[in-house]
Amino acid sequence: AEIMKKTDFDKVASEYTKIGTISTTGEMSPLDAREDLIKKADEKGADVVVLTSGQTENKIHGTADIYKKK
C-alpha cells in the first residue's frame, strides 16, 4: 500500500472504496510508525493509506483510513 496525502487522495477518491481504519501506537520513530501503518494496510489488502491523525509526545499515535481500488 502507498501513503497518500489527503489533498492528493481527494483528486482520485472516486477510484477507491474505503475498507477500514488502522492505527499505530508506541515508542517508535515517525518512520517506524509509517512503516507499521503500511504493513497493517498491506495485511488488509489495501492499495492506499490516507493519514487522518498523528500525534507525538512521549509516544507516537497515528490513524489512517485504508482504501482498495474499485
Rank of each mutant, 00 (worst) to 15 (best):
Ser53Gly: 12
Ile66Val: 05
Lys39Tyr: 05
Ala64Gln: 04
Pro30Trp: 15
Lys11Pro: 06
Asp32Leu: 14
Asp32Phe: 07
Val48Trp: 00
Pro30Arg: 09
Glu35His: 13
Pro30Glu: 14
Met4Glu: 02
Ser23His: 12
Lys6Ser: 09
Asp36Phe: 11
Met4Ser: 02
Ile22Thr: 01
His61Asp: 12
Ser29Cys: 10
Lys39Gly: 05
Glu2Gln: 15
Gly20Tyr: 01
Gly26Asn: 10
Lys70Glu: 05
Ile22Asn: 00
Thr63Gly: 04
Gly45Met: 06
Val50Met: 02
Glu15Met: 11
Ile60Lys: 09
Thr21Met: 07
Glu15Leu: 12
Asp10Gln: 11
Ala1Ser: 05
Asp10Glu: 13
Ile19Arg: 00
Val50Asp: 00
Arg34Ala: 10
Val49Glu: 01
Ile66Asp: 03
Ala1Tyr: 00
Pro30Tyr: 14
Gly20Ile: 02
Gln55Ile: 14
Ser14Cys: 15
Asp36His: 10
Ala46Thr: 00
Met4Phe: 05
Val50Ala: 00
Asn58Gln: 10
Thr17Leu: 12
Asp36Lys: 06
Lys5Gly: 09
Met4Cys: 07
Leu51Ala: 01
Leu37Phe: 05
Glu2Met: 14
Thr63Gln: 11
Glu35Gln: 12
Thr7Ala: 15
Gly20Met: 03
Asp36Met: 09
Glu35Ser: 09
Ala46Gly: 04
Gly54Leu: 15
Val48Asp: 00
Ile22Trp: 02
Gln55Cys: 14
Ile3His: 01
Phe9Lys: 00
His61Ile: 15
Lys69Asn: 04
Lys40Cys: 06
Thr63Lys: 09
Leu31Asp: 15
Arg34Trp: 13
Thr25Phe: 11
Thr25Ile: 10
Lys39His: 08
Lys5His: 11
Ile19Gly: 01
Asn58Glu: 13
Lys5Ser: 15
Asp65Glu: 09
Ala46Tyr: 01
Thr56Asp: 14
Glu35Cys: 12
Ser23Trp: 12
Thr21Ala: 07
Thr52Phe: 06
Glu35Val: 11
Met4Gly: 01
Ile38Tyr: 03
Val12Trp: 04
Thr56Gln: 10
Gly54Lys: 07
Glu27Pro: 13
Asp32Ser: 06
Thr17Val: 14
Lys5Tyr: 14
Ala41Asp: 01
Ile66His: 01
Asp42Pro: 01
Asp8Leu: 05
Glu43Pro: 00
Asp32Pro: 03
Lys39Val: 05
Lys68Ile: 14
Thr63Tyr: 09
Thr52Lys: 10
Ile66Leu: 10
Glu27Ile: 12
Lys68Pro: 03
Val50Trp: 00
Lys44Asn: 07
Asn58Met: 10
Lys68Gln: 11
Pro30Met: 13
Thr63Pro: 07
Lys70Pro: 02
Asp36Glu: 14
Thr25His: 11
Lys69Leu: 06
Glu43Arg: 08
Ser53Glu: 10
Lys59Asn: 14
Lys11Thr: 04
Val50Thr: 01
Lys70Gln: 07
Gly20Asn: 00
Asp42Val: 14
Gly54Tyr: 15
Tyr16Asn: 01
Lys69Pro: 04
Leu51Glu: 02
Ala13Asn: 05
Gly62Thr: 15
Ile38Asn: 03
Ile38Pro: 00
Phe9Cys: 02
Asn58Thr: 12
Thr21Lys: 06
Gly62Ile: 15
Glu43Gln: 10
Ser23Pro: 04
Val12Met: 06
Glu43Ser: 08
Ala46Leu: 01
Lys18Cys: 10
Ala33Arg: 09
Asp8His: 05
Asp47Leu: 04
Val49Ser: 01
Thr21Trp: 06
Ile3Arg: 01
Glu2Thr: 15
Glu57Thr: 12
Asp42Leu: 13
Asp42Gly: 11
Asp36Pro: 03
Asp65Pro: 04
Lys68Leu: 08
Ala33Ile: 11
Gln55His: 10
Lys70Tyr: 05
Ala33His: 05
Lys6Asp: 07
Ser23Asn: 09
Leu51Gly: 02
Lys5Gln: 13
Ser53Arg: 06
Gly26Arg: 10
Asp10Met: 12
Ile19Gln: 02
Ile38Arg: 09
Thr56His: 11
Ala33Glu: 07
Val50Asn: 00
Lys59Met: 14
Leu51Val: 08
Ala46Asn: 00
His61Thr: 13
Asp10Val: 08
Val48His: 00
Arg34Val: 13
Glu15Tyr: 11
Ala41Ser: 03
Thr17Asp: 11
Val12Asp: 02
Lys40Tyr: 05
Lys69Ile: 04
Ile19Tyr: 01
Asp42Ala: 13
Glu35Phe: 09
Gly26Ile: 14
Tyr67His: 05
Val49Ala: 04
Ala13Pro: 00
Glu27Ser: 13
Lys18Asn: 06
Glu57Tyr: 06
Thr7Tyr: 08
Asp65Leu: 03
Lys59Pro: 13
Tyr67Arg: 03
Glu2Ile: 15
Met28His: 07
Gly62Tyr: 15
Glu43Val: 07
Gly45Thr: 04
Ala46Asp: 02
Asp36Asn: 08
Phe9Asn: 01
Thr24Glu: 03
Ala64Arg: 02
Phe9Tyr: 02
Lys6Gln: 13
Thr7Phe: 08
Glu43Tyr: 08
Thr21Glu: 08
